[in-house]
Design a protein around this nucleic acid. Structure first.
Lengths: 340, 340
DNA sequence: AACGTTGTCTTCAACGTTGTAAAGAGTTCG
DNA sequence: CGAACTCTTTACAACGTTGAAGACAACGTT
């Protein structure tokens, strides 16, 4: 039987409300009663029932974090950071996996889950701009990723174009001239892949290198096996590339595996760079050069935006806000070479 | 403003309770009223407030899943599976990271988190047997891992001894004779590492191979860098091993990296086997031979046990239950060799 | 001495839901 | 034809909490 306010109140010989007042730091309680109540709380081991409290207060204390899948280490890491950031604001995180399904993402933005929530943070893959408009009436929404979709949602992002340009510039700086890209998604005009592809093209153009569509390999899904297949394809071209920029680290890991399996030395014959900075890349063989978004900053910004929207002054900032978080380029063996 | 029972009731011109009755499939409702209420529910878009419902029902609808860290892909994957299994039972999962801290693990087993919970599933690292006894009064607890700790908790496990014995037997079957182990934890008499070490010793003994303590490398933490350091140590021995069994895949990945970096061919000069079957190992270079626990079965069993304990007949099965889930050995390039 | 002020504590109602019990409307039966 | 039954719906209270407002005492002010 959990201890309730009633139990504490009886033990301290005060009303339930006085105990509540002590707990909520209501000022007009004598030091004497406060001490007595405090003691009763400790003796009984009372802990508030946040469910009941939030019912009364008209909030829920929950936010949803919806990511494509926890199996992707990038999202696993981000999830851990969001949980930590949310706790600082007395929020409990409900983790949801959308598996890239448009329906599941719609369910998140319209707050259709079983639990009521104060806000939602979504890392979108499949939703379309029109989905976003329907969601206006539900809980505040924070999207992770560039604002290429108009709609009533805050955004947290890194500058994907600049980041991928930085990565490709690094490859060019190494003297590479035939640079491929793995991770284009031809069907999608919006979304991460199009931005990263744009950065790739910008870097090529700035260096006066030709854009060769044969070197841009589309993938269906950002997972290791697709990266491997893409690399296999590139290696059998008549003129294979001397460097590959992969739109995320999972693709890069798969690509490296495929290359090594065929005896292609990395970075000697092909340099590889990725995006996300997952631990797997840092500790793989060879270790992976990559763009490292500041994941802690992303988590903190997302939770903070959600918090602002749910606070009392939410009317004031009706305009959707954008927050840009920093990134760095981490140069490792897959481009810089092995240090023996 | 969320829709409540009251809104639906007004629209259907019935009492709140009748709406509740319809929702809960109370049999004595005429088809006519039921239809009218159903329509009102659809028109208003009513969705029950599970928080209020569970407050009234005296349950919470939450279980805690506490894992060391989501960054470990094994736990990330397991977490996803537990969330799915819990949803089938109308449970919402609260994910907690213990980071191997004894205090945080204690907090889980004594239900000290902010939210009330119906049950807890813990993958323990640091708690000691005595911690478990204190927890008897709180929510039902399911532990992931062998019952080497007595206490009032259910257990879900694979046969760690048999599993590691299987892995080492595989190495022996390849003709390896100096087989090292990475991942011993000398201080801990209980826990995963001691069981896996035991399986290792059994396999050696069964094959008539000597047990050489110099080949058993302790680590502080099951992470990639520790595996790399351990492998570096093994390679500089006067008589280095020709195979290594790592107590988990992260250690194995780190170990392989360290070996490859030094130009040691895998599996030609050293074969490597791991434990956990994380995706990273399957797609790394070379791909990792490993023990694959049936993670879906673990998740399902854990949630199912928790469910039994919270059901109405909880008194009947006062005895702690153990469930053993299957595993398989996945043979890949790190022992079988590269297929070009 | 009557009054307002201030501080301290309590009563009451409500958040959204469901279990209990009772009320109302037929039906069946002795 | 009243009693006993069945079916259907409703009123009420309660889960644990907190905001609003009230009760009461002690105090200072005119």
């Amino acid at each position: 039987m959990p201890v309730t306010l009633k139990d504490v109140a009886e033990r301290a010989s005060v009303s339930i409300k006085t105990v509540s007042n002590v707990i909520n730091d209501y000022p007009f309680v004598t030091a004497e009663t406060r001490a007595r109540v405090q003691r009763a709380i400790e003796e009984t081991g009372y802990r508030p029932n946040v469910g009941a409290r939030n019912l009364r207060r008209g909030r829920t204390g929950f936010i949803i974090l919806a990511v494509p899948e926890l199996e992707n280490p990038y999202f696993a890491e981000l999830t851990g950071l969001v949980i930590t950031a949310a706790r600082r604001r007395e929020w409990t995180v409900l983790v949801e996996q959308t598996l890239g399904s448009r329906e599941l993402e719609q369910a998140v933005i319209t707050s259709m889950g079983p639990q009521r929530i104060d806000a939602a943070i979504l890392s979108p893959l499949a939703i379309e701009p029109e989905d976003l408009l329907q969601a206006s009436s539900s809980a505040p929404l924070v999207l992770l990723g560039e604002r290429d979709i108009a709609g009533p949602a805050d955004h947290v992002m890194i500058d994907n174009v600049a980041a991928s340009r930085t990565a490709v510039e690094h490859l060019i700086g190494l003297g590479r001239r035939r640079i491929a890209l793995i991770g284009d998604e031809p069907g999608k005009a919006t979304g991460t892949s199009s931005l990263r592809t744009a950065g790739y093209r910008q870097a090529l153009a700035a260096a006066g290198l030709p854009y060769d569509p044969a070197l841009v390999v589309p993938v269906k899904h950002y997972e290791r096996s697709r990266g491997a297949a893409a690399m296999a394809h590139l290696l059998q071209l008549p003129e294979p590339p001397d460097a590959v920029f992969c739109c995320n680290d999972l693709l890069a890991v798969g690509a490296m595996h495929a290359a090594l399996k065929r005896g292609v030395a990395i970075p000697d014959r092909i340099a590889v760079a990725g995006f996300d900075d997952i631990a797997e890349g840092a500790h793989g063989y060879p270790s992976l050069t990559t763009i490292a978004p500041d994941k802690a900053a992303i988590a903190e910004a997302a939770v903070s935006l959600a918090h602002q929207r749910t606070g009392p002054g939410r009317a004031t900032s009706a305009e959707p806000q954008d927050v840009q978080t920093p990134f760095t380029l981490k140069i490792r063996e897959s481009t810089a070479g092995l240090s023996r």
